[in-house]
Computed example of a mutant assay.
Amino acid sequence: MRDVVEQLQRLGMSGYEAKAYVTLVGSGQPLNGYEVAKRSGVPRSTVYETLGKLVAKGAAYEVRGAEDATDYLPLPPRSLLERMRREFDDSIESLQASLPTIVAPPEAHLIHNLKDAGALLARAEDVVAASHTDLFLSIWPEEMKRLSPLVRRAVGRGVDASVMHFGPAEEVVGHLYEHRFSTPDVIMENLGCRLLVVAADRREALIGGFLGGSAWGVYTEDPAVVLMAVEYIRHDIALQIIADRVGHESLREFWTSDPEFTRLRAGRGRPAALLRAAGCPAPELPAG
């Protein structure tokens, strides 16, 4: 019952209204105000006001009871949910038309920090859910479990999703490429944490890192940062495709022996230090 009350509150009912409605639904027969107060925990001093609000919303009906008293019946749950869905959809459509007309041009591109795993993943979900045309992700299995349903929905509505996945994927969504050159354990050793990059519609991006229970991240609409995030993922995907086409051993030979590649790899280990300085803790090393 507590969960149902909380969900009804999220959809616009007050706590008392939700408790009274759930009590009416669970009774199976009309109830008067005294009975609703006794069964629901709504104070007797406010129960009739609460029931009146439910009636005004169409979530309950007044009926004549014994001795011409007023009893109350609930709107059936299926009808209530359909009504709430219609009202919610109508509000969204109205806001989609009206909100953009009052938005002031930003004086600076939006950017904000994310301090924990919950906030980071919730913001990543926002980015994926808001995508309309294209979506780029560089992601590890731990985070993909949370984002996969939203990515699947995005693909279902026509979004072109490109996913760079570190390790085997439980489910292939969009254009998914497994990062095998270099292997995930080598990447983890170099970076020091699981890096998450999400970019949508070339207009917003999220970059963060996870290690154990700790996380850090940043969200931005800065076009330069968004461009770099998209190109980072595109080039990583391109390297995986090249490795598959020419052979991993051949590419690895170039990677380890060519002087230009050697020069580019000279900074190996620095990303981990920089990320740790930004808030991602150092990985725990095995004893000995």
Rank of each mutant, 00 (worst) to 15 (best):
S79L: 13
W140D: 11
D71V: 11
L81W: 13
Q96E: 15
D90N: 14
K19D: 07
P30T: 07
S138H: 08
P76R: 10
S14E: 04
A18C: 07
V55H: 03
A60F: 02
T70G: 05
L80E: 07
L81F: 15
G156A: 03
V22D: 02
V155E: 00
R83D: 09
A119R: 11
P105K: 05
L24H: 04
R78Q: 14
E82Y: 14
L137M: 04
P77A: 08
V25L: 06
H109C: 10
E62L: 06
E142M: 07
T46L: 03
N32Q: 02
L31E: 01
A66D: 12
G15Q: 04
A124V: 01
R146S: 11
I102N: 10
D116K: 00
H132E: 08
W140R: 10
M84T: 11
D71K: 14
I111M: 14
G58R: 06
Y21N: 06
K38Y: 13
Y34W: 13
R39L: 13
G33E: 02
L135Y: 00
T50G: 01
P43G: 01
V63D: 01
A20V: 06
S131Y: 01
L135S: 02
S148F: 08
P100H: 06
A69C: 11
L99T: 14
A66Q: 13
R152Y: 09
A161I: 08
A122K: 12
Y61I: 06
L110P: 07
S138Q: 08
E93F: 10
K53S: 10
R83H: 09
L95V: 12
K57V: 07
A66S: 11
D71C: 15
P100S: 03
A124E: 00
R146G: 06
P43K: 05
E49M: 08
T70V: 15
A66N: 10
F88C: 09
A66H: 12
R152K: 14
H112L: 12
S138N: 08
P105T: 04
N32E: 02
R152I: 11
K57S: 08
E35C: 05
G33A: 03
R44P: 07
S14D: 06
V127L: 04
A108C: 07
T101Q: 09
S14R: 06
E87G: 07
S45K: 12
K57E: 09
R39H: 10
I111P: 10
I139W: 01
L54E: 04
D126Y: 04
A18G: 12
A69K: 14
P105R: 03
S14H: 05
F88I: 11
K53V: 08
G41W: 00
R146P: 03
V151Y: 02
S45N: 10
G28Q: 06
P76C: 05
T101E: 07
M84V: 11
R44H: 13
T46V: 14
L110N: 09
S148A: 15
A130N: 09
D126F: 06
L121V: 11
L150C: 05
